[in-house]
Write a protein that binds this DNA or RNA. Structure first.
Length: 749
RNA sequence: UGGGGUAUCGCCAAGCGGUAAGGCAACGGUUUUUGGUACCGUUAUUCGGGGGUUCGAAUCCCUCUACCCCAUCCA
């Protein structure tokens, strides 16, 4: 299990500890209306991962409540994705459609409770009646219908007596709720359509908001994890489960931020557009962020999982950089995959002083990958090297072959360029070279130093293969649509030359093409007659980067200024209060302002003040700590009184306790409602101000932290807080912090 | 504009009143028969802005700002 917990795991642990839930049950609940993408992978990793980490289980549920959009081919893709990522769902695949009878029964129950009604407004009317975000809606006249009538109508809706749109079933909640979702949400609509599993059995289908919470409940889900856009739906979720008075335990919904990644799109609509508009070659096009796409491209499930773990889970909308994903696949493949040589853009080299041929035994793995294995590499007089591994007029820092600079052929000999053959336009056609016989790899006695080793293939034995080079699908970092597509996202090299071993004895489907990147034998189009390789990801290329960097101009970091908005003016009464607080009571303007604007707070303050006359300290604790509690509840619900706050402040004024202890006492008052004096007595919280008692502790702390003492003496003043904190910790917070502060700085200088 | 969220390095992200974790990216360097890998080092006096409370604030309070979600018979 991760040592680092995300906020969801923290919630799960708390619920387990508090007994709110006995067993962790999660679920991955996609609607089968599209192919799963890497965003789903995040959700899968989360739901299945949490279940695994807490010895619970996770269900796979198809949320199939909309017969017009769903299809069984998508459920297959979804099942594949979960399996491919290495997870196993509990029992068989669940379908919301399997629960239709139960969900229907719950709807009946709601009607009988008078909490749901059949509405016969038109779609437009319903929209109109809903109001707007700033205006309350109004309830439909049909909400008056009797329970009997509702029951009858709903029954007939189910039987298919009405046309689509004639009636709907709505929950009777609140047409003026601030949360728009709560304005009598629709629970059922009529839909005469064939459902891919339920066929034509039903004429009514439950809406998401009604079906989802109940499906979770039926399956015994404890933690219903979904994405941020459902935050507003949580109120309905809770309303349905509470109103139905279902037997506990019930599920609770928690939301996290969906995955966003730059240079790609994740929305179903846009993905569908790409596929249907033939901008890509199907759902498994290796440029797509679909699971099928990554799979075909050659990504490993491990790398996707690692990625999901690395990006974390939080509630802030975010856009992850693709380089994070690319790192994960490179890192995974680096230790797993054999190295072979493939020349993408060949140029012929004739080694004039070499006769005959030989086979070189070449390891599949570099020295730092602890794997065994090698293949026979044919070597001969005519070879091919990469066109950009030779330059007649190289720039500074170029390590490869030039007329003046020899280079090593990886696993073989060092060669030197003797002559460059060109056509009439000056294009290089061929290089004539010589080799150093004593420079053979592994038994080099030539003493020649070269700057690099390049990959190559023997002309006679090399096989021609197709290599598909993929670049990012979009050229815009946050693509809007088709117009942002990268025209060069696919580059097909149809006559790359590869060493023969790769074709005849594949040891794995994935390879590193030395110095280029990781490649995958395309699972669809590959055959021994016509081998096809997909580029998974390139190797890091610091040479290429270096040469490109010169062109890029540094962009100016624009720090934008923030302008403060206008503050609502005070009423006259508030003005008067403010004046009194600042003028006669001596409160600072900020505190007075906060107090004067909040009637609850100022009343509380006045009451405390009448019990104990210490306006400034009283005001401070009330505007800060009491205010926090009042954000969550009414004054009447508070466990402590203004008088007790007065006593608390008195304890501070008396120097019986420090303000730090006061916080602690206050926490206790909030929880237990105990009197402050009592708390101080019970817990022995009287502060220690006697240097004779504190000094030994300080000495101990100093002795235990020599590193930090040195840092402090070197000028790191922040560390004073560290020492004070340590001393305070050692005394259970009771040492007088002011005294400690003074003493510590004396000790350290 | 009402409600619900969010804001910590170029990108993610820990942190819950006492020394601003970590990963990616970037930049140096060492090793290297991959300009790969590995390894070492550098990169936030500061947490969206401004105030306040405190010996001490990214964490508590006030206030302002920016962005996201909600007015589908989609999920």
């Amino acid at each position: 299990m991760n040592e680092k917990k995300d906020f969801l795991r923290t919630i799960v642990e708390e619920d387990l500890k508090s007994g709110k839930c006995k067993e962790v049950v999660t679920r991955f609940p996609p609607e089968p209306n599209g192919f799963p993408h890497i965003g789903h992978a995040k959700s899968i990793a989360l739901n299945f991962g949490i279940a695994r980490d807490y010895n619970g289980h996770c269900n796979l549920r198809m949320d199939d409540t909309n017969p017009t959009t769903e299809d069984t081919k998508y459920v297959e893709a979804l099942k594949d994705a979960v399996h491919w990522l290495g997870f196993e769902w509990e029992g068989s695949v669940r379908y919301t459609s399997d629960y239709f009878p139960q969900i229907y029964a719950y709807a009946i129950q709601l009607i009988k409770m008078g909490k749901a009604y059949v509405d016969s407004l038109t779609e437009e009317e319903i929209r109109e009646y809903r109001g707007t975000v700033t205006q309350a809606g109004k309830r439909s006249k049909y909400a008056q219908r009797s329970i009997e009538e509702n029951l009858d109508l709903f029954e007939r809706m189910k039987r298919g007596e009405f046309k689509d749109g004639e009636h709907v079933l709505r929950a009777k909640i609140d047409m003026s709720a601030a949360n728009m979702k709560m304005r009598d949400p629709l629970m059922y609509r009529i839909r005469h359509a064939e459902h891919f599993r339920a066929g034509n059995e039903w004429a009514v289908y439950p809406m998401y908001d009604f079906a989802h919470c109940l499906s979770d409940y039926i399956e015994g889900v404890s933690h219903s994890i979904c994405t941020l856009e459902f935050e507003n739906n949580r109120d309905i979720y809770d309303w349905v489960l509470e109103t139905l008075e279902l037997e506990p335990p019930r599920p609770y919904q928690h939301e996290f931020a969906r995955l966003g990644m730059n240079y790609t799109v994740m929305s179903k609509r846009k993905l569908l557009e790409l596929v249907e508009g033939k901008y890509v070659n199907g759902w498994d096009d290796p440029r797509l962020p679909t699971i099928a796409g990554y799979k075909r491209r050659g990504y490993t499930p491990e790398s996707i999982l690692t990625f999901c773990e690395q990006i974390g889970v939080a509630k802030a909308n975010s856009m992850v950089d693709v380089s994070q994903l690319e790192f994960c696949i490179r890192d995974d493949l680096n230790t797993k995959v054999p190295r072979v040589m493939c020349v993408l853009d060949p140029i012929k080299v004739t080694i004039e002083n070499y006769e005959g041929s030989e086979e070189i035994d070449a390891s599949y793995y570099p020295h730092d990958v602890p794997k065994e294995g090698s293949r026979k590499l044919p070597f001969s007089r005519e070879i091919y090297i990469e066109r950009n591994d030779f330059m007649e007029n190289p720039p500074k820092g170029y390590f490869r072959l030039t007329p003046e600079q020899p280079v090593r052929l990886k696993h073989a000999y060092i060669i030197a360029c003797k002559e460059v053959v060109k056509d009439e336009n000056g294009n290089v056609l061929e290089i004539k070279a010589t080799y150093y016989p004593e420079s053979k790899s592994g038994s080099d006695t030539s003493g020649i130093k070269v700057k690099s080793a390049i990959h190559w293939v023997s002309a006679a034995e090399a096989k021609e293969v197709e290599v598909r080079l993929y670049d990012r699908l979009y050229s815009a970092e946050a693509p809007e649509g088709i117009e942002d597509l990268n025209p060069d996202s696919l580059h097909i090299v149809s006559n790359a030359l590869i060493e023969p071993a790769v074709i005849t004895q594949k040891c794995d489907e994935r390879f590193q093409f030395e110095r280029q990147g990781y490649f995958y034998a395309d699972p669809v189009d590959y055959s021994d007659e016509k081998p096809v390789f997909n580029k998974i990801v390139g190797l890091k290329d610091s040479w290429n980067k270096k040469s490109k960097k010169a062109e890029q101009a540094p962009k100016a970091p624009a720090k934008k200024e923030q302008i403060d908005g206008e503050v609502v003016p005070m009423t006259e009464a508030q003005e008067a209060l403010y004046a009194k607080y600042t003028n006669t009571l001596g409160l600072n303007t900020e505190v007075a302002n906060t107090l004067a604007r909040d009637a609850q707070l100022s009343d509380f303050f006045e009451e405390a003040l009448s019990a104990y006359n210490s306006p400034v300290n009283l005001a401070n604790i009330i505007t800060n700590d009491v205010a926090r509690e009042l954000k969550q509840m009414e004054v009447s619900a508070l466990k402590f009184t203004a008088k007790e706050i007065a006593s608390l402040v008195k304890l501070i004024d008396d120097a019986t306790i420090s303000s730090k202890i006061a916080k602690q006492v206050f926490e206790e008052m909030v929880k237990s409602g105990e009197r402050p004096e009592q708390i101080v007595e019970d817990k022995g919280l009287v502060q220690i101000s006697d240097p004779a008692q504190i000094l030994p502790i300080i000495e101990e702390v100093i002795a235990n932290n020599p590193d930090n003492v040195a840092k402090f003496k070197a000028g790191n003043n922040k560390l004073l807080g560290f020492f004070v904190g340590q001393v305070l910790k050692a005394t259970g917070g009771k040492a007088n912090p002011q005294v400690v502060n003074e003493l510590v700085s004396n000790q350290l200088y």
